[in-house]
Simulated assay, not measured.
Amino acid sequence: MTDTEQTPQHVDVEWLSEHLGDPQLRVLDATVHLSFDQHGAHVESGRAAYEREHVPGAAFVDLIGGLSDPEGEAPFAAAPSERFAQVLGEAGVGDDSHVVVYDSVNGIWATRLWWQLGLEGFDRVSVLDGGLAAWRAAGLDTSAGVETYPAATFTARRRPERIRSTAEVEAVVEAGEEPGVLLINALGRDDFARGHIPGSVNVPFAELVDAEGRLRPVEELRELFASVGALDAGRRPVTYCGGGIAATAAALALAELGRNDVAVYDGSMNAWTADPARPLES
Rank of each mutant, 00 (worst) to 15 (best):
V203S: 01
T7A: 10
A58F: 09
P23G: 04
E168N: 02
S282D: 14
I197T: 03
A58H: 08
W114S: 05
L215T: 13
V100Q: 08
S97K: 02
I64T: 14
V27Y: 08
S143E: 15
G229P: 09
V209P: 00
T273H: 00
H39G: 13
E53P: 06
S17R: 15
P204Y: 01
E71V: 01
L208Q: 12
Q86I: 04
S200V: 04
V218W: 03
L280A: 04
T4F: 05
R278L: 08
P198R: 06
A59K: 05
V173N: 09
G229R: 01
A85E: 08
V172A: 09
Y149N: 00
P80M: 09
P179K: 03
H33I: 09
D95L: 08
A152N: 06
R164V: 15
G89Q: 11
D123V: 08
L119V: 00
E170C: 10
Y265T: 06
V181H: 00
S282Y: 14
R189V: 10
A30Y: 08
V32H: 06
A211L: 13
R47A: 12
L140R: 07
Q116L: 15
E44G: 00
L140F: 05
G258Y: 13
L257M: 04
A137H: 06
A233C: 08
L25P: 04
E51F: 07
V201M: 05
E223L: 07
I245Q: 09
L215Y: 08
W135A: 03
D69L: 11
F84P: 00
